[in-house]
Design a binder for these strands. Structure first.
Length: 227
DNA sequence: TGGCCTTTGAAGTAT
DNA sequence: ATACTTCAAAGGCCA
């Protein structure tokens, strides 16, 4: 199965219209618990009969990224009724421009990496592990989720691979030109420092974006490559 | 308060 | 082409 997402579809997913008027106003409120359940990947994309994607005019994948707190702070136009100036800001093609009302600086580092398939799986299943288990520490929970991930069937995993693929496409649409390299150097690798005797790690030698040639990122556009 | 731990996958970088 | 490194999330823990 191959599915190419065109610009129109991605704009629909993001809630952005072709004329850049931004997401429809009624979709700016934070999702309720029931709505989050509706968007659950493990539900197989099936929606309650009273709440369909068509009825809400929102693509089931939109909350994964657009309504994610990673991308949409409370102060963002996505979480508030949209206004004309805000709509114009949303319309700006570059994520390097001011994004949110009251946020004078919309730095590149505010944009985080899109979640991969396993991260999406963890985000959804974490609370379940918390409820059923004795573990509280994230590291222990993540070990459990890693085992659960491997126990999933190929078709079950493919749902998350597809979601991750669409997250990347939507991310690319929202932040054209963004690179994961922009967030490099935010953490330090103690292990590397120990191994290299205190010398900077390989990545640390290239942390300054100003000294690097700009590279264009190429996002895969074929959905279902893992199936 | 900030970094570590722990997982997988994507992407960037080095060789 | 291959191997290595970093970062995404999460929250308890520790220096």
């Amino acid at each position: 199965m191959e599915q190419i997402l065109n610009t129109e579809e991605m704009l629909f997913m993001s809630g952005l219209s072709e004329n850049g008027s931004g997401p429809s106003c009624e979709k700016h409120q934070p999702l309720q618990e029931s709505e989050l359940q509706y968007y659950s990947p493990t539900s197989g994309g099936q929606s309650p009969s009273s709440l369909t994607a068509a009825a809400t005019s929102v693509h089931p994948l939109v909350p994964l990224l657009l309504y994610s707190d990673r991308h949409i702070p409370l102060s963002s136009p996505y979480s508030q009724p949209i206004s004309e100036p805000v709509a114009r800001q949303v319309d700006t093609p570059s994520w390097t421009r001011p994004c949110y009302p009251g946020n004078s600086v919309c730095s590149r580092q505010a944009v985080k990496k899109p979640l991969n398939a396993f991260m999406l799986y963890m985000k959804e299943m974490r609370h379940q592990v918390l409820q059923e288990g004795r573990e509280k520490e994230s590291s222990a929970i993540n070990r459990i989720l890693g085992r659960k991930w491997h126990a999933l069937s190929r078709s079950e995993q493919s749902k998350y691979y597809d979601l991750a693929q669409k997250e990347r496409l939507l991310h690319m649409q929202l932040y054209p030109g963004w690179s994961a390299r922009d967030n490099y150097g935010k953490r330090k690798r103690k292990q590397n420092q120990q191994q290299l005797g205190g010398s900077p790690s390989r990545s640390e030698t290239v942390q300054n974006p100003e000294t690097l040639p700009s590279t264009s990122i190429v996002y895969p556009v074929v959905v279902g490559q893992y199936q």
